[in-house]
Amino acid sequence: MNNLPPPKPVDPINAEFWQSCQDSVLRFQRCTECDTFRHLPRYMCYKCGSFDYEWAPVSGKGTIYSWTATHQVFHPSFDVPSLSIIVDFPEGIRMVSVMPGVKAEQIELGTEVQVTFKPLNDEFVLPVFELAQ
């Protein structure tokens, strides 16, 4: 698992994403006009053009879309190997995350995963993933 500092976005909608999950519930932007989920955070809905949205909770269950196990140390606080993944959600969106303590041999395309929350310090939890129960 990496021990990098928590993200500190300058951009307000990017900051809202991380704020929205600090109660350990994963949320994504959802258009309040047409109900389309989106991620990365965007200012407007690419489907209907609306600027109105909410941070809607999701189950946090998804499947492995791709992965890489990184062996090279690129940052002093970055433990290797680290398994970084792209998660595919039933809501029609994907996100980048990691699976602490999981090896590449344990997953394949489509493996079911579940969000969990790792405290990085007293004030910030990072959504990461584990194998689904």
């Binding site: 990496n2 990098l4 993200p7 990017n14 791709s66 992965w67 990184t70 940052h75 970084s84 990691v98």
Partner: peptide, 21 residues
């Protein structure tokens, strides 16, 4: 804001996702 918090900081990691898939 979205990759580096997970330790993904270089092209070799991001293009590895394409390659793996």
């Amino acid at each position: 804001d979205f990759y580096i918090p997970y330790g993904v900081m270089l092209p070799v990691q991001m293009y590895a996702w394409l390659a793996t898939r």
